[in-house]
Design a protein around this nucleic acid. Structure first.
Lengths: 196, 196
DNA sequence: TCAACCCCTGAACACCGTTCAGTTCGGTAA
DNA sequence: TTACCGAACTGAACGGTGTTCAGGGGTTGA
């Protein structure tokens, strides 16, 4: 394959992932359809499959971008709270997580809604991105519980992430509990303050 | 409509919901298809729509049964721990929630995966069932925090439920990577013990 | 210039939930 | 018993998915 065609392929891949991201953001993961996407991109449906194995691969590409932005938002939050107490840093991270999910609900949902059981194992970058989030949580935790064994610290890290994730998930789900963002913030604060 | 036809209709509705429940349990919500279901039930595809408005209505019926069994399991757990501390009762309920989700993963997932945003409001029994779960949580909480205002207690109730739900959700999601139930139990214990 | 190559096209395929005209069946009145 | 009618049931057909693939057409290299 020549350089020119490679560049064209890359350009199409980029255009498709941007259009897909936009569509998921606006209408949710379920609203992303192959034919309208191709029309938006000015190509035929078949062209999508020269660039991505299937629609799931395209969604995973979108998720990669989303995870990157999410990680950046959380990291920024914990770094600007560098001089605060560990508990306050945990709360700052959780609030950043909440605000990202609240402002990018459909993209954030797509991170967890995408079907991955179909083919092989979870992509490595998925695990890496999650590991980055976890290490951000583990650090303040190890200050709060300096004597905790590594294994238990790891468990506690996952437990806290899962807790905050659950609060944000059900909080944003309007049909289950549907509460405004500041109430969700309060819930996160209630739980994390008890921990510290 | 005569009594006989009503009975026949009810019998088909029952048969369909049982077959659907079985199928979701075995293969997940996505594996429930109209045509195989009709074949299993010994009727034509169209007959399904004489009994249920659409497949979503059928799934909601299955979810109703699941929610009832889940509620019974949690209630039983909190009642057999009647003489324990409030924190222990919270942990007992959470463990019951975990075990139910672990042993009925696909049915439990269907409770949250079903699409309901399409049409009207959430069914009343959905809210009632959730309210029942919440009141089970609120009772021990009000013992732990007797001076807490009602509004904050309600928030804390939802926060705790969401936390446990998140831990169970993400814990079971990585079941393949080998996070056994007792580790999830430990995570729940870690978080709830800190609360009490 | 021109053949070999392969990207790109879009009709076609398999499968989905859902519909509906035609058929069959159940209940009821003659 | 018979005749009739409305409701239930049938299953092919409809509209909409994601995905495929033979063939047309642009790109490349000699």
């Amino acid at each position: 394959m020549s350089e020119k065609t490679k560049a064209r392929k890359a350009a199409l891949a980029e255009k498709l992932v941007e259009l897909a991201e936009r569509q998921i953001q606006l209408g949710g993961l379920a609203s992303l359809k192959a034919r309208p996407l191709a029309q938006d991109a000015g190509c035929a449906v078949g062209a999508i499959y020269n660039v991505y194995d299937d629609m799931t691969a395209l969604v995973l590409q979108v998720n990669g971008r989303t995870f990157q932005r999410l990680g950046a938002a959380v990291t920024k939050a914990v770094e600007s709270a560098r001089q605060d107490t560990p508990t306050q840093r945990l709360i700052a991270m959780s609030h950043a997580y909440l605000h990202f999910a609240s402002e990018n609900t459909n993209l954030w949902r797509a991170l967890f809604d995408v079907e991955m059981s179909a083919d092989g194992p979870v992509p490595q970058w998925y695990l890496d991105a999650l590991g980055g989030l976890f290490s951000n949580i583990a650090e303040p935790l190890s200050e709060i519980f300096p004597d905790m064994h590594e294994h238990e610290l790891d468990l506690m890290t996952r437990a806290l992430f899962s807790s905050v994730h659950g609060i944000v998930l059900l909080g944003l789900e309007r049909r289950i509990s549907g509460v405004p963002d500041d109430q969700i913030e309060k819930m996160i604060g209630q739980v994390l303050t008890q921990i510290g």
